[in-house]
Design a protein around this nucleic acid. Structure first.
Length: 568
DNA sequence: GCCGTTTTCGGCCCGACTGTTTTCAGTCG
């Protein structure tokens, strides 16, 4: 196997660090922000940016030009950006960490370093404790306190971000409750949760109201509120008993569109939107759009009006990541994204025949009650040896007779072993109607090669949760998405979006690469219990973030249609 | 350093908050 190329996340980290070090040196702020925006573009790109740079094609990405492409090649060839290696020799290691402390930026960090000679976090703590920071003009007691608090918080820092699948139902429930209050008019979720990003920090709500203080009062007195972090006439922040921070902003109805758009983000989307507007002599803010020359301010009651005023079609929140949606919206070429109602069945689930909590019948009836036409039961192949598969099929046949026209599909999920083989032999697999192959172990052992071998197996219809990542727990196998997608297209193998809240795997960027290449993508829940069937909406949201249409999502079809698309 | 429906040069989002200040720089989202 060839030397693995650096991952996008590692490439991005080098540019972020380079930006930090240059900012500490007082470099031109636009150069610094170029590196930052390149880092974020690299992080959000599905395919290997290192490979793109080697092919001379990284320049095609927004915000990456000749210079940065060259620096990516330096990473591939020498392990590190040359300019970064050079600066690391100049700037003491911890000084860049000063900047990570909240409220402490490059300017202050550089002054602490240069004027006090403080170069480590320990020295910084000592300087704050000994009240030496206030010797610097512009810094006072408050700053010292804040730094000490930040240093203590960092010690127990958890990188944990709540999962969309956990937080979204809570958010939507609060939106619903606020909608029902007599003082409210329009209420919407906003922020990264509205964009259905896989993890979130705060839960944002935007509302208009006939009586804003009444709505704020109601919001802060809901029974699950355990802390009111802030409360004013138009804005409040509360913490719920399950630890989520909810932010409610009540805004004037005439600029509801402007504010909802602003607070939905993303930052990158808004930045690009505003830069494009500036070129046309318009200044966009959360309060409206100002004509720079005349000073005339236009407000918009809806997002549709705002986007139309700026020359765009309305952009679904899931697409607002500055990954081509603005250009597409201007050209009226946005895709018609798949919707939850398009889903006709679930192709990945477990029962008590393996590690599921519910019987086959309970799972099937629940799927039927959701309005599905079919459910693939895909218990682990390791548990269906020695005649147990045939026993399960007899039960399936009997149930199908009773539940028709609903259909339980005779499926199986087989592990891809460390040696690249599958947990069941070809003869056993051939008996199933629907075969999923998934990585469950040894994620570091040639994961791409093993997945490619599974894809080449004529009995395997779909690869489950491609990277096997677990959000907040492990980053998942380092899969060469390009090669996997190419092989999947060639063989007619499907690549799943697994809707489990801590998987969402394919991730959005990988699913987009796969979809563009022509892979059909099933969205499935991998349910091990009844409630998990309810994760379909976040799986569909993930598909929407990947720009997928109904046509590109496999299980918007009847089972008969899927049978015809399935490889032989 | 990037980028172009006024530009291959000369620009580069916008506003709120904070702390330390008498008018603003730095930081943040």
């Amino acid at each position: 196997m060839a030397n693995a190329l650096p991952r996008n996340a590692d490439v991005a980290a080098q540019f972020d660090l380079l930006a930090d070090l240059m900012e500490l040196e007082g470099a031109d702020r636009f150069r610094v922000s170029s590196y930052r925006s390149a880092a974020s573009r690299i992080r959000e790109t599905g395919s290997s940016v290192a490979q793109l740079a080697l092919d001379g094609r990284a320049k095609e990405l927004q915000g990456i030009g000749k210079t940065i492409e060259g620096k990516i090649v330096e990473i591939v060839e020498d392990g590190e950006i040359h300019a970064l290696s050079k600066r690391k020799d100049v700037v003491p290691g911890d000084v860049a960490l000063f900047m990570r402390l909240p409220g402490l930026g490059a300017k202050t960090a550089a002054r602490i370093w240069h004027e006090l000679g403080v170069t480590t976090l320990d020295e910084l703590r000592a300087a704050a404790e000994q009240q030496r920071l206030r010797d610097l003009g512009g810094l006072g007691a408050k700053t010292e306190e804040r730094i000490l608090k930040a240093l203590n918080d960092t010690a127990e820092a958890e990188p944990f971000r709540p999962l969309l699948g956990d937080a979204l139902p809570a958010l939507l429930a609060v939106v619903e409750v606020l909608r029902e209050h007599p003082a409210s008019d329009q209420v919407s979720d906003a922020g990264s949760a509205r964009r259905r990003k896989e993890t979130i920090r705060d839960l944002d709500i935007i509302a208009t109201a006939s009586d804003p203080p009444a709505l704020i009062d109601y919001f802060t007195s809901l029974r699950w509120v355990v802390e009111i972090a802030a409360k004013g006439d138009t804005k409040a922040t509360v913490v719920s008993n399950d630890g989520y921070r909810f932010d409610l902003r009540v805004v004037p109805p005439e600029s509801y569109g402007n504010l909802l758009q602003h607070f939905t983000g993303s930052k990158e989307h808004n930045l690009a939107l505003r830069e494009a507007a500036v070129r046309r002599k318009l200044s966009v803010s959360e309060y409206g759009v100002t004509e720079t020359e005349s000073g005339t301010v236009h407000t918009h009651a809806t997002e549709e009006e705002l986007y139309r005023f700026l020359g765009y079609d309305w952009i679904p929140p899931e697409l607002r990541e500055n990954c081509g949606e603005l250009e597409a919206a201007r050209a009226h070429e946005l895709p018609a994204l798949v919707e939850l109602d398009d889903i006709r069945g679930d192709l990945h689930s477990h029962s008590t025949w393996s590690d599921g909590k519910e019987t086959l019948e309970v799972m099937a009836r629940a799927a039927k009650a959701r309005g599905y036409a079919y459910l693939a039961i895909t218990d682990h192949g390791e548990r269906l040896r020695e005649g147990r598969a045939e026993e399960q099929w007899a039960e399936v046949d009997a149930l199908n007779e009773r539940l028709k026209p609903f259909r339980i599909v005779k499926g199986v999920e087989v592990g891809i072993r460390a040696d690249g083989g599958l947990a069941l032999g070809d003869e056993a697999l051939a008996g199933f109607e629907w075969v999923i192959a998934s990585l469950h172990t040894s994620f570091d052992r040639n994961p791409t090669e093993r997945v490619l071998a599974a894809i080449e197996n004529p009995n395997v219809h779909m690869i489950g949760h491609l990277t096997a990542r677990k959000l907040n727990i492990r980053s998942g196998a380092d899969i060469d998405i390009e090669r996997v997608v190419e092989k999947a297209v060639e063989t007619g193998t499907f690549l799943e979006i697994n809707a489990q809240p801590n998987r969402l795997d394919l991730r959005d960027t990988h699913a987009r690469v796969a979809g563009e290449a022509g892979v059909k993508i099933p969205v499935s829940t991998d349910s091990h219990q009844l409630s998990a069937l309810g994760h379909m909406p976040i799986g569909v949201a993930q598909a929407r973030r990947a720009w997928l249409t109904k046509e590109q999502v496999l299980n918007t079809r009847t089972w008969k249609q899927i049978e015809r698309l399935r490889k032989r």
